[in-house]
Every structure is written in structure tokens, then in C-alpha cells.
Amino acid sequence: MKQKELKIGDLTLRRPIFQGGMGVGVSLGGLAGAVAAAGGAGAISAAQIGFREPDFDTRTLEANLRAMDKELNKARRIAKGGVVGFNIMVAMQHYADYVRQAVKGGADFIVSGAGLPVDLPGYAAGSDVKLAPIVSTEKSAAVILKYWAKKWNRVPDFLVIEGPKAGGHLGFTGEQLSFFDAVTYREEVKRIIAKVQEYEEKFSGKIPVVLGGGISSREKADEAFALGVDAIQVASRFVTTEECDADERYKQAYIKARKEDVMLVKSPVGMPGRAIRNSLAERVMGGEKFPPKRCRGCIKGCKPAEIPYCITEALIQAVKGDAENGLLFCGADAWKAERMETVQEVIDDLV
């Protein structure tokens, strides 16, 4: 099924595909720039983005904000006019600072989840940056649409739906993950689209819908478009590309993984997460605890003395190549990766 280009305000995607934001350090300027250069939308993850900065441990916020500029500029050099933005989690400490930095740097869009971004329009006020909440259910879509309409007199520039087969932190309870299968979630997507259409009518404008989670093949992409969405969001397929910013050993962990190696893990931030089975994942699920070496203030409400392990430390270890003692977040179909590809090959295969 050949897909047309997608327009979001003054932005044009030659290929209707968004690259999912993967942190820490998996999707930086290299990957995002390559996706944007190929006609899609490249997303840089702002989560602890400054982990390579020399003052990351002592001045974490400043290091992260500085790295946001560096990575966006890198993506711009690669993409030369392509569409590049940020994925910024609501759950992050200093969320407003990260949003304002993205706006100041000239990002094309901000995608925001891990909580409902109720105040995102206020933090980005006066800018042309396109804003998109991430939702997983019709209920969460209804809440954010109603809130933005009432408080900010606006709707999202586009809306991202992340399904139960997505990677990393999931916007579902364990009970919901058990309930939603392929058939029931398709109906949920249709309900979300119907809710979006209500607000399209109220505000007399199109709100493009992007669907992600388990879209790893042309067949899955076609199924998504058949539901009526305007674009797809893909993350795991881009990990095993030459342009991905993660260490080669991280990528090889995907290629070596079997279906039974993809598992749900307990996250210290209070949400279930999907990751590749390794020593750390098994030990965490077995009840072991790993006291943080230091706190870098990544997530709101985190209590370092009580968490089983530090998500920042685990993700940094993984992206630097420690495939056994780091946390290897992934989507449900990550095990299907068989070889390294280029970003262009992935996009051509999917859309």
C-alpha cells in the first residue's frame, strides 16, 4: 500500500513515518537526522541526553540542556531541511525546562508521554513548534483533548497512539496488557480516532493520528493505515541500523534475541516496561536490588532509597554496550531483527 506524504501545518513528511524516541542515548542526532533525511520525522530522546557530557554527574540539568542543542544541530546537519523534534517525558524532573530548550533550539515538534502533558502548550507558548501528546487509550485521549481545548483553546497538532506492543515504558497497567490483544486494541484505536474527529469538527481542522507499537513489517504498517491513521511510529526496527546512536553491542543484543527473550520488567518509575532478557532483567525480576551509586534527578517522585535499581544507570550502561548489566528496552517484535540495515532500507520496507 503506497502512502502519500503527510502535512502537519507547515511541516511536510515525504514518508508518513515517525521514529520513536528512545532513551537513554539510543535515538540522538545521528538516528533522528538519518530518518529526517530519508523523508520521515526524526525524534531525539531528551531523557538524560547529556550522559556523555563531562559535567553530567555534577550539573545534570545543564549537561542535558546543552546536549539537546548539540544533538539537534547534528540532526539538522544530516537532514538538511528534514523534520526533527524531541521526545520529552512528562515524568522527567525539570520537564518545563526541557520543553523550553527544545523550543529555543528550534525543534520542529515535541512528542510527550509518560504522563499526560496537560501543561505542554503553556510551556511552548508563542512558538511554532508542533505539539503532540502520546496516549494509549480512548480515556487518556479524551482527557487530554478536553483539557487542552478548555484551558488552552487549542488541540494537538498531531496525536500519537502507543499500543501495548510498544517498547520501553508502557502506558498500561498489567491488567490492561493482559486484556488488550490485536483485535481488542484495534477497536480501541478506532475509538481514539473517533474521539479525535470530534475535536477536528469543533476546531475545524485536521489532527493527524500516528500509531505505534509492534509495527515491524509492511504488513503491520498496512494494517495500521487500514485503521485510518495518518502515519506510523516505529522504534525497534531503527535500533538495528547503521545510523542508530547506540553501541554496536546493544544492536547485536536485538539481533541475537529470541522471542522468549522479550519480557516485561518492573521499572522503578512505577510503570511496566518491555526489555530484552539479560542478567540485570532476570535479577531485578527475581527481587534483587541495586542501590543507585548517585542520584541524577531523572524522574519526578523517585525515592532513591526505595527503588530496586536506578533506571538512569541501567539505561546508560546498556547504550554504552554492557548488554548484560544494562537495561535493554525494546518493542514486542525486537526479536525479529536478523541483520543490520540502513535507515533508508527500513523506511522503504515499511512505507
Rank of each mutant, 00 (worst) to 15 (best):
G82K: 00
P117N: 01
G33V: 13
P16T: 07
K80L: 12
I17Q: 02
V83P: 03
D119E: 14
D55V: 10
P117E: 02
G106N: 06
L31D: 05
K104S: 14
G85H: 00
A125C: 14
V24A: 14
Y123I: 12
G50T: 00
V111D: 06
G21I: 14
V24M: 11
Q101S: 12
A75L: 13
G113R: 02
V83H: 01
A46S: 13
A36H: 06
A91C: 09
T60I: 15
A36D: 02
Q48M: 13
A102T: 12
M68P: 02
F86D: 04
G20I: 15
A46C: 12
M68Y: 01
G20C: 13
I49Y: 01
Y95N: 05
F51K: 00
D69W: 09
G39R: 01
A32G: 15
A125I: 14
N73Q: 12
K70L: 12
Q19A: 14
I110P: 09
S45E: 06
R76L: 14
Q93H: 11
D69Q: 07
R52E: 04
V99D: 07
A47Y: 04
D119S: 11
G42K: 02
G85E: 01
L61T: 04
Y123Q: 06
S112A: 11
V118R: 05
F51H: 06
K104P: 14
P16N: 00
L116H: 03
L65D: 00
A41G: 08
G106P: 12
A124V: 15
L28F: 09
T58L: 08
P117A: 05
A37N: 06
G30Q: 10
M22F: 07
I49L: 13
V35K: 00
K104Q: 11
Q48L: 06
Q93N: 13
V83L: 05
A114R: 03
N73Y: 05
R15E: 03
L116D: 02
D69Y: 08
V83W: 00
R52S: 06
L65V: 11
P54K: 00
